[in-house]
Structure formats: structure tokens, C-alpha cells
Design a protein around this nucleic acid. Sequence first.
RNA 1: GCGCCUGUAGCUCAGCUGGAUAGAGCAACGGACUUCUAAUCCGUAGGCCGCAGGUUCGAAUCCUGCCAGGCGCGCCA
Length: 583
Amino acid sequence: MVKQALEQALQKALQTLLVDHPDSMPPVVLNRPKQKDHGDYAANIAMPLARILKRSPQQIAASILETVIWPDAVEHAEIAGPGFINIRLKQASEASVLKTIIATGAQYGRVDVNSQASANDLHKNSQQKINLEFVSANPTGPMHVGHGRGAVVGDALANVLIAVGHDVQREYYINDAGAQIAVLANSVWLRMQELQGEKIVLPAAAYPGEYIIQIASDILTTHDYHGLLEMPADARVKLIGQLSIAANMAMIRADLAAIGINFDHYFSEQSLHQGGHVTALIEQLQADGVVYTGTLPPPKGKEVSDYKPVEQLLFRSTEFGDDVDRPLAKQDGTATYFAADIAYHFDKHQRGFDRMIDIWGADHGGYVTRVQAAMKALIQRDSQPDVMLVQMVNLTRDGKPVKMSKRAGTFVTLREVVDEVGADAVRFNFMTRRVESQLDFDLQAAKEKNNENPVYYVQYAHARIGAILRKARDAGIDAQLIEGFDLEAIDLSMLNAAEEQALIANVLAYPDALKKAAERLEPYRVATYIMRLAADFHSFYHKNKVVSDDAALTAARIVLIRAVRQVINNGLSILGVSAPDRM
RNA sequence: GCGCCUGUAGCUCAGCUGGAUAGAGCAACGGACUUCUAAUCCGUAGGCCGCAGGUUCGAAUCCUGCCAGGCGCGCCA
């Protein structure tokens, strides 16, 4: 590509200039300037060199320009402002990307791991086997809207990472162990008794939702009530617990499928306990000398009336950067959730992943340090897992907050929202913001088909291109031009209107946008990128007619909009949003 | 009290591993449909980038301290 050629040319010039300072060579980075009259690319490389060479940035930039041998595509380069090198390219050199995009289609922007051409590509060596864990909602009820945000972001991130050549496994950790499962089983059992005509009192700790009644009713159709009644309580709780988990997971999977998300792997917490992995892990930590029996101080910052000092098995997480040591076993000797979670992450490591990425809700933020501390102790690796904390979703309708109380059973499920506004609107809207920002999601606005709702804006651009191409077909234009791939003969040099240039520059930037999204684990970048591209297209559309009497110009513009359509399509497919041909 | 996240236009947000004149959408105001889809576009107006210091040739961006909001802080998961 042109950009790499420019960077290499500058790099070479710098090597000549920096012979006396071989170690202090800063990397050459080219930017697309915001101002059009600042050229097609700008390099700020002279500025950081000012200190090293003890000369002014302008002087250094002048030296670079004297030394550099530009590739053919460069028309002009000049020094500007405090020491930028602004580079302007020859007109046709960038437009040729349009043909490349059409030729490569869905592959445009992606790294082709198998291609021979990329044998010496950096990506070949940096390809990672990544485990991406997300959602992991408890199997005690339906997914709520907050889970949905994590789900959508995780799925898109997986797509982004795969697109740049990584090997990604999507994983869901099922918290199917612990006290909550007993609560679930008891809640279901109570409802079963109720369905059998017994009078029941639902304790405050029980799950109140309607779905519990549904599960209870389903179990009654497959299991004999009196048989269950006569079972020992332990066995009954265990059985109903398993059935309820299965029912909830089926519901969760269906909810996920409704927004187009499928996991490669579901990992059960129970399996860790049953396989003895949690005990084995604690033993290993003991052997490493990072476990002791001790007493934790009372928690800070909230009223604790019933605090009693208790001896527990503790992990020395303070040795690995945590504030306080963390318990591995409860008072009754059973393993904590934390212990199982360490075993889980250790298991991921043993499965051979180069990298683990976890997507958690913000309410688990306090948990990051201790898991990373444990991984540091176990596998001597820092910042594993790499945790993305997704901030809360504030659900509103017409600007008024929607009550979200799980306890009262009034929380809005993800499924309800998807059914109301559609999967595309949910997915796109959840991905237009950085995960660090809280997200305001308005049910009414998500249904509006206007400029406030970015999903329709982008899809409309795609559909509009479809309409133009249909029009072109009706006008009798050669089908080869509209849907074929033999476009060598088309002259693109007349695409020099400002809107056309902007579109070309924009589609050219797609691979970089994707790469940046992958590097920084920020899939929202793909969403903002295509919003920008769609805006440029709508703007182009209003000022320039594609199908006209000028056959040569019509041909060039058809190539342009086909390329734009392809890039919008590729971006939307990363986000898991549909790209309709007509709306 | 401590930890993490956030604070940018009236509202919702981009821009944050330092670069040129801080950008979008909504709302406001004024325009554009006999034309390839107006679910769109064009224009006007709107900014102590939370506050105060510091580092730097250069700070919305990095550092420190404060202020405000969100999340969390025993053997719940």
C-alpha cells in the first residue's frame, strides 16, 4: 500500500540522518490530516527528533526532504506549521484501491493468514490463540440489558480479532455451582408445590420471576410430582437444580441466538469442582507457598454488624498487587467462587491460549486485581486475563428511566428489548460508545428511523447504493460494470470531486480502523468508522448523480459506490448487523 | 476511608499511547424532494474540553491535587 511505501521511504531517510544516533530512532507514523490542504498524509517525525538532534523541527524536516526518495505516487511534499511534513499524492494512485476492494470483496480489510504474500507479514508472527470469555450470565434467570451490552461488544470484538488474523474462541462460563443454585432449585420446587395446589410462602431470598413458574410447570410434565416429594431433600434439590440450570441455559442460548450470538464453548463451573480441579489448584498454590490460614479484617466502608474474626484459607494476593489477601475456602471448608475462578483461568492457560480476554460488568471491577494476582502467582504472567469492564446500561423510554429491579421482578430482559426494537438496533446502539462510558439506551429512540438512530442511517446508505445500482441496470448499463469483476479498463481519474476524494480516502482507511480496533480491543471503532463512511456517502449522493449521460463518469462512479457498499457491508458484518439492499 | 470508570456545545457522545483552526448527531434557526430512496442533504448559531497546578517547543490528551457522578469494597456469584 501507499502508506507503507511512504513510511519506508521516510524510515530510510532517517537512517541516513541519524547515523550518529542509531539507537534513538523514533518510529515513523503517518496520519491523515484533518485539513484537506495539509495534504493526503502528514508526518510529525521531525518534532520528536528536535531534542535528539538539537536542531529545530523545521530544519530537520528540511533535511529529511533533501534526503528522502519518494515512491512514484507522491506528487508533492512540503514543510508546514511547526515542522510537519505534508505529503500530497498523485490523483490516480489512491483511486485504484476501489478496484482492489471490489476484487477482494468480503476479504477487504481482513488479514489473510493463509496467503503466501503475507509470509513475511508481521501478522503471521503475531497471530495469537485467544480465549474470549463474555456474557457468562448466571444460569438463574434470563439475560438483562446489561448482559446484552457485554454480549454484543464481545461478539464484535471476536469478529474484529478474527479479521486481523487471530484464532479466537468465544467462551461462556456457566456459574452452575454454589449457593445460588440451591436457591434456584428451592424457588422452582416451591412453585411446583404451588402448581400442585399447595399453599406456599415465597421467601425473600427466592427468585420471584415468572420464568420460575414456567420451569416448574415444565418439570412437572416430565417428572412425577409424588416421586419427587418422596425423594430425600438433598437429592431432590440436586435434580431440580440440574433441570433448572438446563432450562435457564436453554433460554439464555435462545436469547443470544436472537441477537445472532453463538459461543464456541460453554464451560461449566461444576465440572471444575467435580473433576477435582479446584482442590488440585489450592494444593498447587499451597505448594508454591502463597496460601496460609489467617483472619481477614472487617470490610471497610459499610456497616458490618455481625463481623466475627474467622480463620480461613487465604491466598496471599497482597504479594501480587492486591490490597488484601483473599479467601479460597469458606468457613465450612468448601471452595469460594474465587478459588473456582482461579482454577478456571488456569485451565484456560493449560488449554494453550496465548491470551485470555474477559468481558465483565462494571460491578465486577473490584475482582480484576485478585484474579490477575492469582494468575501471576500460577503462571508468572502479568495482566492475564485482560479484563474489559463494560459500564452499565441506563434504560429509558422517552427519556424516563425504566425501573430495573431484579428483586421485584420488574427488570427488563434483553429478549424484551430485542423483540421490541430489533436485533440490529440493539447491536448497533450498544456498540457506538466506548465500553468505559455508561450507556443511555432509549427504547423509543431505538425504534425511530431517523438520524438519531445510527443503525438506520448506515443501513440506509447501503440500501441507497442498492437502489442506484438497480437504476443503472434499468438504464441498460452493462451488467459487468454493475456486478462483474473485470474492471481493469475503467478510468477512475475523473473521480476528483471533493466528495469522491473523501470517500476514497475513507474506504482506504478501513483496514487501519480495523487494526486499531483489534489492537486496542475497541470494537466500537468499527461502528464509528462506518457511520462516518455512511455520512460521506449521503453527502456524495446529494451532490453527484451516479447514473448520467456521461458514460465514462457513470462507470467510474459505479465502481466508487460498489466499493463503498462493500466496505459498509464488511463493517456491518463485523458488528453482526444486517446490510439490507432495500429499505 | 479505599479501588476502578466517567466529566468535552443545551442533550447524547467522538477526539485521549501529546501535534496544525476541538468534531458529529439531536434540539434551535434558515434552506433543498417533477431528479439514482428526504430513513437524506446543505447552511447558521452554539465550547473557561469539571477546577487548580505541573511536565513540554506544543496539553482535551501525560503527571499531581481537588470537585462532581456511577460501580464496587467479609467465607454472594
